[in-house]
Amino acid sequence: MMATNASSVPVVPGSEHDATAPLSIHDMTVAYHRKPVLWDVDLDVPEGQLACIIGPNGAGKSTLLKACLDLVPRISGEVQFWGESISRQRGRVAYVPQRESVDWDFPVNALDVVAMGTYRRLGWCRPVGRRQRSAAMEALERVDLADLAGRQISQLSGGQQQRVFLARALVQDADLYLMDEPFASVDASTEQAILSALRELRSQGRTVICVHHDLQTVQESFDWVVMLNMRVVAAGSIEDTFTIENLRRTYGGRLTLLDQAAMALGRAHRGEEEG
């Protein structure tokens, strides 16, 4: 039936994905407990962009990043990094989780955390050596935290913690950076420091994708935007995409029908309330 109908598709060109794009997502649907939270995401992020993902709370922004990295299961669709699966390209992808996702009371200092970015290249059982430590120190210098390298992480301010996470990503020397809310509850100077680090990455031809929540800074800070609300409302360069109309469609209330449908799907599969 699909075959018979496809010939009569009136609009929207077929999905020809760019095999060289750092991140391309094909028809990805993600569900928690069988309840879909992202519908049919289809996205190509071009190389060398400073991109942000914006959308209201519960739009699935963080989930999008996690699903790309296989941290949460997808129920359909495919994700490619430079045309290959994540397992073949992990070395080129750096991920910065949300700051709240870890226990900052953990007994490590800032340098230890940054050095974690070198673990993958070190491989199993090899201890962190002088080279890794000096690489970590360099990354800390790039985010202006060199003098706090020995500080236990709970004694850092929120902005400093965020910069430690950024340094951990920098030390990976990746080509694609996926960052979950790097600007959440940080002070103005940290925001500037992070932004200039990201701009530097872009100028080296690397790609950065941030989950972002502050609409006011989108235009000045980023050059590419994904507008997300359970599905991709729009994606593209800031000038073309960041329009009032698209914002209204992204933030103008949730699509209650999609919510209802998601709940019904979740319920049906969990075996609740079925005829």
């Binding site: 992990r90 974690m116 059982c125 962190v128």
Partner: peptide, 17 residues
């Protein structure tokens, strides 16, 4: 090293493979 990463930030550990 592996256990330290696991205990501190399992999400990051997963993202690194």
């Amino acid at each position: 090293k592996e256990f330290r990463l696991l205990c501190f930030d399992d999400h990051f550990a997963g993202s690194q493979g």
